[in-house]
């Protein structure tokens, strides 16, 4: 029966982690709505998450749009349906690739940085110091980062949508010989508000996931540099998996509507 022991241990560890994460989330969210509010930190986080992620998100989006235009042209030309390239690019970018790629890229940048920063604060007793200075660490560190993530991710995805569509336009017009005005008109005609909105809702959820995972793993890191390294890895891996998981759940919700 020894083979059952590791399975049981894994199950118990999973349940304990799920419980800890649930309590952490509830505590963090409750502090979002209770004063005092640290607006200076919120502003700094919004700039860090929103503004400084723009190059990463922009580069990812433009190349995704360019590749998408080339690939869809290759596929559709087999059915003489090359005209659908603009439609496919704009739909794929706004509904799927914009939020998911931006989410994954920012999970690497912000999730890792949050986990490393908060993890270092944990192992150097800075979080304990906050408590002794009558400051709740959840309110001071976690709540502003969650709000910044939820607010700034949709902004990033909106930028990613525009740049991604522009990438598709560049390839379609300059590489595949499409008429620029026609391409843009087709994009505009085919695009529905719901396509963009569903992407923005996804972005807000992904922003919450990325910042929550970064804060949670950083907050619970133990054991010096190695512990901080593990927390950073766990933050990025768990945020990436949860983004893909919730992407399906949200797509299913919007799909059935």
């Amino acid at each position: 029966m020894n083979f059952l022991q590791p399975i049981g241990r894994m199950l118990l560890t999973f349940l304990a982690t799920a419980g800890r994460l649930t309590l952490f989330t509830a505590d963090a969210v409750s502090h979002v709505f209770r004063p005092p509010f640290y607006l200076r930190i919120l502003g700094r986080q919004m700039i860090d998450i929103g503004y400084y992620s723009l190059p990463v998100v922009g580069l990812t989006a433009i190349f995704a749009g360019m590749v998408l235009a080339l690939q869809s042209f290759t596929g559709f030309s087999r059915f003489s349906a090359e005209g659908a390239v603009a439609n496919v690019v704009v739909l794929s970018i706004t509904r799927e690739l914009g939020p998911v790629l931006a989410g994954l890229m920012v999970a690497g940048r912000i999730g890792a940085s949050l986990a490393a920063e908060i993890g270092t604060m944990r192992v150097t007793e800075q979080i304990d110091a906050l408590t002794t200075l009558s400051t709740n660490p959840m309110k001071y560190m976690v709540a502003p980062r969650l709000v910044a993530g939820v607010v700034m991710f949709p902004f990033l995805v909106l930028v990613a949508d525009i740049i991604g569509v522009f990438g598709g336009y560049l390839v379609a017009v300059h590489r595949l010989g499409f008429n620029g005005a026609n391409y843009l008109q087709q994009t505009y005609d085919f695009l529905a508000a719901e396509d963009v909105n569903s992407g923005l809702v996804k972005a807000a959820v992904f922003g919450f996931i990325v910042t929550l995972m970064g804060c949670y793993h950083g907050y619970h890191s133990r054991g010096g540099a190695q512990g901080v390294g593990t927390a950073t890895t766990n933050a990025v891996v768990s945020a990436s998996i949860l983004i893909l998981c919730f992407d399906y759940v949200l797509t299913e919700m919007f799909f059935t509507k």
């Binding site: 270092t120 604060m121 150097t124 007793e125 800075q126 304990d128 110091a129 002794t132």
Partner: peptide
């Protein structure tokens, strides 16, 4: 008031 071993100053 508390003086921590490593200082625990906020970087």
């Amino acid at each position: 008031g508390m003086l921590f071993q490593g200082g625990a100053l906020f970087d």
